[in-house]
Simulated assay, not measured.
Amino acid sequence: MRVLILGGTGVISRCIADQLLDAGHQPVLFNRGSRKQLFSREMEWIIGDKTKPESFRQLMAGQRFDAVIDMISFNAADAAQTVETFRDKTGQLIFCSSTAAYKRPFRTIPVREDEEALCDSDAFPYAYHKAEMERYLQKVIAEGTVPITIIRPSLTFGEGGVNLGVLRQNRNIVHRIQQGKPLVMFGDGTLPWSFSFAPDVARAFVGAAGNERTFGKAYHATSEELHVWDDLYLEIGRLIGHEPKLVHFSTKQLMSGKPDLFAHLYYEKSYAGLFDNSKIKQDIPGFEARMTLSEGLRMMLDWYERDNLAIDEEKNLLEDRLAETYGRWCGELKELLSN
């Protein structure tokens, strides 16, 4: 199959491209062409900018794909542009949504796709716009004019990603553990979660491509290995041979102080991240999230070392200040309670 990936160089999409090649398919990557060095094998590229609709349509004129995987639509307008551009140019459109698009609190645990409502509040814009995208796509599915598949990853880590850690501090986590510095954890760290990794999630997209059983349906594609949030840091500490020191803040406190950094914790990750994969396993035989938390974090640590990732000094300072504030609070609370 000739499969177009809109994006193609992101955390999940680069794994999709590699897995398509491994399966004997022909991936075609559409993006600005600035990250070709990410691939060691030859790929077909179409260089352009999807935010420029007219030039995008011209680039795709005369093209034909067995499937189009859209990793860069974040709202209904983005998705509509993809649908209108490729309606007569492909046998299937696959959209990357997110489990963030669900309305909280959940109705089911583990979450089952067809028993949940979509987010209807714009308090967390990312989630709301993904939900609006899905509402638009459901209308297109009802029209029956083009086969559409929707895949909803949960929190996914992978090489190139900038989202690992409560402060999304990545390499800083290793640095702080090695230096004996405290790490900030939200809540009490015992919220259940299944941490997913990009190579596993990519298999869902590859398995859906050209698969008629997935037409008109939406699926989770997540790990089902049960952990709690503290485990994320505790396992990194185990892998590098140093026990981490954790300090815990309420999610509301963090979000109210710096919503641009912590809103995702308050609106999305204050609820258990457990998702049922029964539906995707039924329609994509052999799909399974195989990577354990330990294996996935080892992959991330190897990437940090290989690419010599720098410390984010601004976040490092913020975490220092949060830890100092926590220490003062604990001291004041102990004094108050002892009187």
Results as ranks from 00 to 15, higher is better:
Arg203Tyr: 01
Arg203Pro: 02
Arg203Cys: 06
Arg203Asp: 05
Arg203Met: 00
Ala204Leu: 05
Ala204Asp: 07
Ala204Thr: 03
Phe205Ile: 10
Phe205Val: 03
Phe205Met: 06
Val206Gln: 00
Val206Ile: 12
Val206Ser: 05
Gly207Gln: 04
Ala208Leu: 05
Ala208Pro: 01
Ala208Ser: 13
Ala208Val: 10
Ala208Phe: 04
Ala209Ser: 07
Ala209Thr: 01
Ala209Tyr: 03
Gly210Cys: 05
Gly210Arg: 06
Gly210Leu: 11
Asn211Met: 05
Asn211Trp: 03
Asn211His: 07
Asn211Leu: 10
Asn211Cys: 09
Glu212Tyr: 00
Glu212Gln: 13
Glu212Asn: 08
Glu212Thr: 02
Arg213Glu: 10
Arg213Pro: 04
Arg213Leu: 12
Arg213Ala: 14
Arg213Asn: 11
Thr214Glu: 07
Thr214Cys: 14
Thr214Tyr: 12
Thr214Gly: 01
Phe215Glu: 13
Gly216Lys: 02
Gly216Glu: 06
Gly216Pro: 02
Gly216Ile: 05
Gly216Asn: 07
Gly216Trp: 05
Lys217Asp: 08
Lys217Glu: 09
Lys217Ser: 11
Ala218Leu: 13
Ala218Val: 14
Ala218Tyr: 01
Tyr219Phe: 15
Tyr219Asn: 07
Tyr219Gln: 00
Tyr219Cys: 14
His220Gly: 14
His220Leu: 13
His220Ala: 15
His220Ile: 12
His220Trp: 10
His220Asp: 13
Ala221Val: 13
Ala221His: 04
Ala221Trp: 07
Ala221Asn: 04
Thr222Glu: 09
Ser223Met: 08
Ser223Phe: 10
Ser223Lys: 05
Ser223Cys: 08
Glu224Val: 14
Glu225Gly: 11
Glu225Val: 05
Glu225Ala: 13
Glu225Tyr: 12
Glu225Arg: 08
Glu225His: 15
Glu225Lys: 07
Leu226Gln: 11
Leu226Glu: 05
Leu226Asn: 06
Leu226Val: 13
His227Gln: 12
His227Trp: 06
His227Ala: 09
His227Asn: 14
His227Phe: 11
Val228Ala: 05
Val228Thr: 09
Val228Glu: 03
Val228Asn: 06
Val228Lys: 06
Trp229Gly: 00
Trp229Met: 13
Trp229Thr: 07
Trp229Tyr: 15
Trp229Leu: 08
Asp230Gln: 07
Asp230Met: 02
Asp230Ser: 15
Asp230Trp: 14
Asp231Gln: 11
Asp231Met: 14
Asp231Trp: 04
Asp231Tyr: 14
Asp231Gly: 05
Asp231Leu: 02
Asp231Thr: 12
Asp231Ile: 08
Asp231Pro: 09
Leu232Phe: 10
Leu232Thr: 04
Leu232Ala: 15
Tyr233Trp: 08
Tyr233Gly: 04
Tyr233Ser: 03
Leu234Asp: 09
Leu234Ala: 15
Leu234Ser: 03
Leu234Tyr: 10
Glu235Lys: 15
Glu235Pro: 01
Ile236Lys: 08
Gly237Val: 03
Gly237Trp: 10
Gly237Phe: 10
Gly237Cys: 11
